[in-house]
Design a protein around this nucleic acid. Structure first.
Length: 862
DNA sequence: CTTCGCGTTATTTTT
DNA sequence: TAACGCGAAG
């Protein structure tokens, strides 16, 4: 029996059809990766194709990595010479060889969207291009869209005609490209477009690659944009052995230029294409598939198909409605923790999906309270974090002096007293003397006087020293040296003080730096010939999802977009409300752009089909949206699921009378922390049911007494919870909280209209412990790097263990003399209770006054 | 040059 | 809500 006998009829057909264009319409969970890998094996083993001639393209490194792994397993020999990569890295590889043909040097840098935004910002400012109805963001989007469609700056300019707005954008586009070239940089979109241009203008290069890639496979084809389509078309033009795999129902990247017509019109572009539909699903239960099928049926632009399984019905899709968003979050945490305790679920097989990243916050808070370990995928990309970008800018400057953006970023980090005026002078000089920004610094004495010259000179010397050292050092040593020489620690400290002051607590910065070092180390281990440029390139093309470690005993929180391609036994789809999902942007644009709603629906389809065994959908009728409260109706996508598939018994909607009267929630900024004062519990007998339709209110059977009763249920919760922080427990007894770490006690009673929502005004009332910091305590990238190396952050620092780590007291107090490893001895001036840790102010004998975190400062009492 | 504080404003998804 | 930009003051 051969490996191909394990495939079903359609899958087999897809594997055996090796010649000519092939379109595989692979529904969610239909085993497309299996098909692709088997197809590769078949080409090599049975058709005698040289692995060298095979290319498989995906969108994310993660997908590429998985494919690579599986191909390696199934292909005996030579699998390493198959190109299994992403679109972007494919293009980088090609451009590294031939960028000179486009007037770039081959060691060009890659700009992420932040980088390109700041380049654009300068241009927009310089030429006064921003107006009331033309914002930077819009300009950036338009330029990006142009590139997705292979419209160059010149052709856009020609097409702008008399349109004033277009002319402005055209000017920005032109100048932007000039800047990029001057900086020897390409943005993400350039990578694709420039490769296409390279191919179009250099027949020899194109032919070279056409000969090489005789068999091309493209995964997630529904997400290709026009430039990617053209890239593939060119490459496959000679042999036409192009196999694309995708699912039009999972096309969710239109906003990024993906063109669903690429997959819908494949047969038009390749009339002799073989089309194969994979509809048997090996992932989910029939109920889940039915829900997905009926929802997606509401779309018009799609190829008819329906998923089925022979795995059986499974349980119904649970739909739970809540009055307030925090209740919803609480329900999810409670439900997961119950099921976990009963052995019905494993964290690693559980995910919470939502439409927007902002929604993770409430859920994280609850997870911390319940002690549920989790990872948040997405949000701010690791490499977009300030301290990481700063360090990378140093490395970029050392690597490639023509990257003005990088130089500008670090020239005054840490503060060196080099300000805007000086930067402008440097830029002017560079401009008039036709040299790049960094090189102009060496001529500072020609256009600047006084102390600033010395400062610039020092900076220049420092960079040059790094460059010299780089030749003798490993990358790891280099980055350590940069951190030492620049006193980066001190800089981080100042950042963390800021973090505290403005309430944002993105302060795992030190850990992030450790993480970056870990990535440097693992890069050096895995790369054949590690170079600084190589590292920077690796780093430029990673997405957050790439670092998600599987099998971690953690619940994953992520957006629906990030979840594509993944599967979990238990999936919680949160925030199914009109305005949240579908997003209000889409609803507003419904008339002018009906396709947007279809895309939103596909997103719902993606979400539903992530679930293997159990799907729980939830919504809240009121939710805080950018600072104010909004009332929201149940999402149309819920209504599109047939009633027979739904189990609505978990709902818990508060009666509307609680919101009547003068006590408007909008006025109360403590609301979101205090919501658990009325938190219902699905445990025990306290669960109430809401009957009737999705409006939620009409069927409510609550009374005031019920409500009080539910608050009582709250107490049950705390004693039975796995989370046993003293602070947390005490908060629930009799409505008083008495938290050792809190400065005051506030009464919380359960009477509607008074302080259910907490006292008005500052200081913020906190129940139990303080809410989770905005930034999750542990990040996916930690797991990623930790698995590859022994780097810091490896520990089991999930939300809760960190929460409990906080010492209940310090062994020193105000007025005590303490010693610090770096600053020597001093006197404690004050101790303040910060969100995560104590903030200690110390007046050092030599170093002066410093504010530091207790856990980090490791002060010793004398 | 740097810091602070105020007013404004923008809100989706991200390779 | 939070991030940003701007102007004024140190």
């Amino acid at each position: 029996m051969s490996i191909y006998d394990t495939l079903n009829v359609e899958q087999k057909k897809a594997v055996l059809q090796t010649e000519g264009p092939v379109l595989i319409l692979a529904g969610a969970g239909s085993g497309k990766t299996r098909v692709l890998t088997h197809r590769v094996a078949y080409l090599i083993d049975e058709c005698g194709v040289n692995p060298w001639n095979i290319m498989a393209i995906t969108f994310t490194n993660k997908a590429a990595g998985e494919m690579r792994e599986r191909v390696d397993k199934i292909v005996g020999f030579g699998s390493e010479s198959i190109w299994v990569t992403t679109f972007h890295s494919t293009c980088v590889r090609i451009l590294r060889r031939y960028a000179d043909r486009l007037g770039y040097s081959n060691n060009f840098t890659i700009y992420d969207s932040d980088d390109s935004k700041s380049v654009l910002k300068n241009i927009v400012k310089q030429y006064n291009l921003e107006t009331r109805d033309l914002k930077l963001r819009q300009i950036q989007n338009t330029i990006s869209k142009c590139k997705d469609n292979l419209v160059t700056a010149n052709s856009y300019t020609l097409s702008s005609g008399n349109d004033f707005q277009k002319q402005k954008i055209a000017k920005a586009y032109q100048e932007y490209q000039i800047s990029l070239k001057k900086n020897n940089a390409m943005d993400f979109d350039d990578l694709i477009m420039n490769t296409v241009i390279l191919f179009r203008e250099n027949k020899d290069v194109l032919e070279n690659y056409q000969e090489r890639f005789k068999y091309i496979m493209v995964d997630e084809y529904q997400d290709t944009n026009n430039a990617q389509f053209e890239l593939i078309r060119l490459l496959a033009d000679r042999y036409k052995n192009l196999c694309v795999v995708g699912d039009d129902d999972q096309s969710i990247y239109r906003f990024r230029g993906a063109n669903i017509r690429n997959i819908l019109d494949f047969e038009k572009n390749y009339p002799d294409a073989t089309v194969i539909k994979l509809e048997q699903n090996y992932r989910s239960t029939q109920n889940i598939l039915d829900a997905a099928n009926t929802v997606i049926k509401h779309n018009r632009s799609r190829k008819e198909k329906a998923l089925w399984t022979d795995e059986g019905e499974g349980s119904k899709v649970r739909f739970c409605e809540f009055e307030q968003a925090p209740e919803e979050a609480n329900f999810i945490a409670d439900d997961i923790s119950n099921k976990k305790r009963q052995g019905k679920l494993s964290y690693s097989e559980t995910a919470v999906l939502y439409r927007t990243n902002a929604q993770s916050r409430l859920i994280e808070e609850r997870f911390v309270m319940y002690g549920i370990p989790y990872n948040v995928v997405g949000g701010t990309n690791f490499y977009a974090r300030r301290e990481i970008k700063d360090l990378l800018a140093y490395l970029k400057t050392i690597d490639n002096g023509s990257d003005e953006l990088a130089v500008r970023r670090i020239i005054n980090i840490p503060k060196r007293g080099i300000g805007a005026t000086t930067l402008n002078k440097i830029a002017d000089y560079a401009g008039t003397h036709d040299m790049n920004f960094y090189d102009a610094i060496a001529h500072a004495n020609e256009f600047i006087t006084g102390k600033t010259v010395d400062k610039l000179h020092d900076f220049d010397l420092m960079i040059k020293a790094f460059r010299a050292k780089q030749k003798m050092m490993s990358l790891e040593e280099l980055i350590h040296d940069v951190i030492d020489v620049t006193d980066f620690e001190e800089y981080l400290k100042s950042l963390e003080d800021d973090d505290e002051n403005n309430g944002s607590q993105d302060n795992d910065r030190r850990q992030n730096v450790q993480e970056l070092i870990g990535k440097v180390i693992s890069y050096e281990e895995k790369a054949d010939e590690p170079t600084l440029s190589g590292f920077l390139e690796d780093v430029a093309l990673v997405a957050d999802i790439d670092n998600v470690a599987e099998g971690d005993e953690r619940v994953l929180l992520m957006t629906l977009h990030s979840a594509k391609g993944l599967e979990f036994e238990h999936v919680y789809l949160a925030g199914l409300e009109e305005g949240t999902f579908p997003s209000y942007m889409t609803i507003n644009a419904e008339d002018s752009d009906p396709m947007a709603m279809e895309e939103e629906r596909r997103l719902a389809y993606v979400g539903i089909t992530r679930a293997k065994k159990e799907l729980t959908i939830s919504c809240a009728h009121r939710r805080m949206v950018r600072g104010s409260f909004e009332s929201l109706a149940v999402s149309r996508f819920v209504d599109e699921i047939p009633e027979r598939l739904l189990d609505r018994s978990g709902s818990s909607v508060m009666p509307s009378f609680l919101f009547e009267g003068g006590d408007t929630i909008e006025d109360d900024d403590d609301y979101d922390y205090d919501a658990d004062a009325y938190m219902p519990s699905s445990r025990g007998n306290n669960t109430r049911r809401t009957f009737g339709n999705s409006s939620g209110y009409s069927g409510s059977s609550y009374t005031r007494a019920d409500y009080a009763d539910r608050s009582y249920g709250h107490k049950n919760f705390s004693s039975g919870s796995a989370y046993n922080s003293a602070a947390n427990t005490s908060s629930r007894l009799g409505g008083f909280k008495s938290n050792a770490n809190d400065r005051s006690s506030e009464k919380i009673d359960h009477v509607p209209g008074s302080s259910i929502y907490g006292p008005v005004g500052k200081p913020k009332a906190t129940i139990g412990r303080k809410p989770a910091a905005r930034t999750p305590v542990s990040k996916p990238f930690i797991a990623g790097a930790a698995s590859s190396h022994k780097s810091a952050g490896k520990g089991s620092l999930n939300g809760i263990s960190k929460g409990l780590q906080k010492p209940s007291s310090l062994d020193y107090k105000e007025g005590d003399r303490v010693s610090h490893i770096k600053y020597g001895e001093g006197v404690v001036k004050s101790i303040e209770d910060g969100a995560r840790d104590y903030k200690v102010t110390v007046e050092f004998d030599d170093a002066g006054q410093k504010i530091m975190f207790a856990a980090f400062a490791k002060l010793k009492k004398l």
